[in-house]
Design a binder for these strands. Structure first.
Lengths: 171, 171, 171, 171
DNA sequence: TATGAATGAGCCTTCATTCAT
DNA sequence: TATGAATGAAGGCTCATTCAT
């Protein structure tokens, strides 16, 4: 792949992330192309289908999240990651609309990272030992989605997370 | 012919509920008409706009939920309602996509019903006294949304709810 | 035909005349029914086709004009009629949109009335003898149409008619 | 591919001019596409709205008329232009239906051209000095519209114009 | 005869995808 | 490889007309 092709791919992904984050997955591919500064044909050359483009975004997003998680750790790592994720507005709408796009591998790696945070938190005694990775992931996704719905101001967000954290906490 | 019209209205709402529950709000009005067994024009006669149709469904759905909630009560009412809601597949996708359709009144009534359940649970000592209605609603919505995303089998659903309930529980 | 049927027919025609005069022939038949205070089915019972309704309106309109013309006469009858017609806003849009609806008989009778006015004017020496009925009718229609187009204020209307009248005038 | 696009744009305008001239502005955009030999999407790529297409036609039409008028002049320029315009069947229905589409600039330029013809005719003594541009424009539009209505054969057209010209003539 | 709900063809418009340049 | 014009299948919606009540 030529250097400029590589550069275009990146631009397209960036543009797509922004466009879909703002307008949802229903936004048109043309708008992505426009923001990326390329022609529509170029988008389809790199991502033969709109779904491919969505999947690529999600994959990259998940990879970043996994990387982010990997940088954390210790007793509060899980809580920090959880909170941070819920705060990221951009990442959020994505997750909602991308339902159906399957990128099991990337999700798997994110799951691994979260699992590691969970392990450390349990080791440090911050989180109950009988909580498993699947339910933590489920809660993570749930609260992110929920945050998208209504007018969660910071206070509500904090109180909602507090309940979840209390549920996870060791007695 | 008032009777026919009434019957058709009901059929259309039922069909719409099913179609949108399965395919999301992006599903076509034509498909609703087909499932309802009426012509497309009939759908638009009853609901002049697709958004009107969506709003009508949501309104009815919320009314049912509120009614459902009103029938519960006691120490475990909130938990029962919470669990039941998460189980209802049909109701779920709806909530995701219907965001933006404003039916404040209906939502308000649902909130009231949930608030009442919360009050009773707190009175019975099942739920912490420092938890407010807003965060309970937020958790409700969140977990419903989350349940839509992945392959939540019954076990995962139960374990996820268990964490939330633990978070709500009085010590 | 029953008395109430007769009455409905009249109401429908009146409503249609008003609706089509204001919104043009593209206005919906439903709106006519609404204004007439009858159900849509009743409109179609009296006028099996929208075109039939339009034709009926035009016919009645032309009949009235002919009657109007018949009441005039003398040296200035033609000029008076001509001017009056151009002033009638309601009658105008009609004529534009009703193109294609053929009501030769009614037009014929109007033509007769205008012809008579022309004859009298020529006899009185107000109008040149070598002008025929067809061109007078053509001018009548033309100026009515023209008046529909732009912002003909009264002054412009008068000056435009003045040119036409000068063209018709005996030297 | 600029060339193709340009060619298509032209084809579409030509097709639209013909279709709308024959069937009126109510004709479907699909028919325009069919006659132009392009897909419906292509029409909408060039003219995002039906109204845009209508406006474009009218604009081009008026530009041609203005250009045509600019090529004339002298004592009979106005009469020639007037007659020619009335003869153009294609141009005519357009003007009827396109009312409401605002292309003031183009209309303005046409008015200028006609004004110039009028000035020259008055200078040459062919037309009365007390006739203004507005009423000439009004007559122009009127007779064009009128010509659209009925069965104006050539003779009737000539005789009708003769009256108008007599009205304009200096004594 | 009146009512008004139902029908369904047809319209304008959007957008993912293809393909000639 | 990039461009961007062309394609054409839907989709939402309107409205003349029919028909059961």
């Amino acid at each position: 792949m030529r250097a400029d092709a590589e550069r275009n791919r990146g631009r397209i992904l960036d543009a797509a992330e922004e466009v879909f984050a703002q307008r949802g997955a229903a936004a048109s591919t043309e708008e992505v192309a426009r923001l990326a500064g390329v022609a529509i044909g170029t988008v389809f050359r790199h991502f033969p289908t709109k779904e491919d483009l969505l999947a690529a975004i999600l994959k990259r997003l998940l990879a970043r999240l996994a990387e982010d998680a990997a940088g954390l750790g210790g007793a509060d790592g899980l809580h920090t990651f959880f909170t941070r994720l819920v705060q990221q507005a951009a990442a959020r709408r994505m997750v909602v609309d991308l339902v159906g796009v399957s990128v099991p591998a990337a999700v798997g790696r994110l799951g691994d990272a979260v699992g590691e945070l969970l392990r450390q938190a349990q080791e440090a005694g911050t989180v109950r030992g009988d909580v498993g990775r699947p339910e933590v992931m489920a809660l993570l996704v749930s609260v992110c989605q929920g945050a998208l719905q209504g007018g969660w101001d910071e206070g509500l967000q904090a109180r909602t997370l507090a309940v979840v954290f209390a549920g996870l906490a060791a007695r």
